[in-house]
Write a protein that binds this DNA or RNA. Sequence first.
DNA 1: GTCTATAGCTAGATAGAC
DNA 2: GTCTATCTAGCTATAGAC
Lengths: 185, 185
Amino acid sequence: MAFSKVEPDIVMERLLHVFRSVGYDGASLTELASATGLKKASLYHRFPDGKVGMARAVLDHVKGWDDSQIFYILLSSEPAKERLDAALNAISVFYEGGRLACILRAMSHGAAAEIFRDQIAETFQNWVNAFAHLATDLGHDSDTAQKLGESSLVKIQGSLILAQTLQKPELFQDALEAIKTDFLK
Amino acid sequence: MAFSKVEPDIVMERLLHVFRSVGYDGASLTELASATGLKKASLYHRFPDGKVGMARAVLDHVKGWDDSQIFYILLSSEPAKERLDAALNAISVFYEGGRLACILRAMSHGAAAEIFRDQIAETFQNWVNAFAHLATDLGHDSDTAQKLGESSLVKIQGSLILAQTLQKPELFQDALEAIKTDFLK
DNA sequence: GTCTATAGCTAGATAGAC
DNA sequence: GTCTATCTAGCTATAGAC
């Protein structure tokens, strides 16, 4: 063959980058193709379901990242405070310190919203539950832990929006700090 | 003429509803036309710049709402605590208690992001400043007031996302309550 | 597995009658 | 001011050669 197969992981990362940047409706196959370095027909070879299949694969990929990087950390047997630090660090890296958007939010409008609503809701709920679990390990009562789980995700999502529109990534870091403070209070 | 002119305010509200629901890229002219009860050509008569013009008009309309409903309240001469209550109430109404999305966020992806970035950033900054101003009136020092302004918008935006994806509007009301608590602490 | 070429459709936008 | 009819460009998706 003239050219070797492009690494699937690279393709996935590029698709993720496009979708989280411009959203599902805003991502054209032309852009997805040029971002991955593949032609449209080659993308269809890998994703027979087309754009929907690409988005689904990206969401599954992110789910795998959540499981191995966030939930694994938050629910491990390390000391609770260390788990909190490690998880917040991993989150900061994933969002490049507030410079990148959340793929779940990017998929929450238009055509994608109807297709992926359940999957997105489930992922958000998993985040809330994992943070709430950590909160109980830190000594908070059940009600407080639930509120802390919710407010953690609220702060992450809200600060990402502000960080990007105001081009002040430090707002995201501030939010991560605030989460830490809330949990250790 | 066979039919009377459709009220401009009604048209604006319908356009706003479509854009905030499905986003800029997700809003087709066919949907915008059917939502307003006008044909495409009639929409173009009112908005010669097409979809961009409609989105701009909607954002200007919302800016007017911000000025008259939020900033006017937050910066009035009423007692600070009453201003806070009134503003949070107006916000709750505008987002239908957490059931409707933020139009600014809906315009933050894809083609719209590049066109309206400055306008969106300016509006967010105005919200932060108005809330920060109120915080100083409530006795907080300048640094704390700035943080409170930022965290207010973070909580509003973040909770709207969660409220809609998890279909739990109460998360939005919880966030408004939390803002109130923060300011009166 | 990747490519060129293209089908079929819907998008945003316009012309011109009434 | 609103409409029907239509244009072009871009979209998603596919066929078939290599």
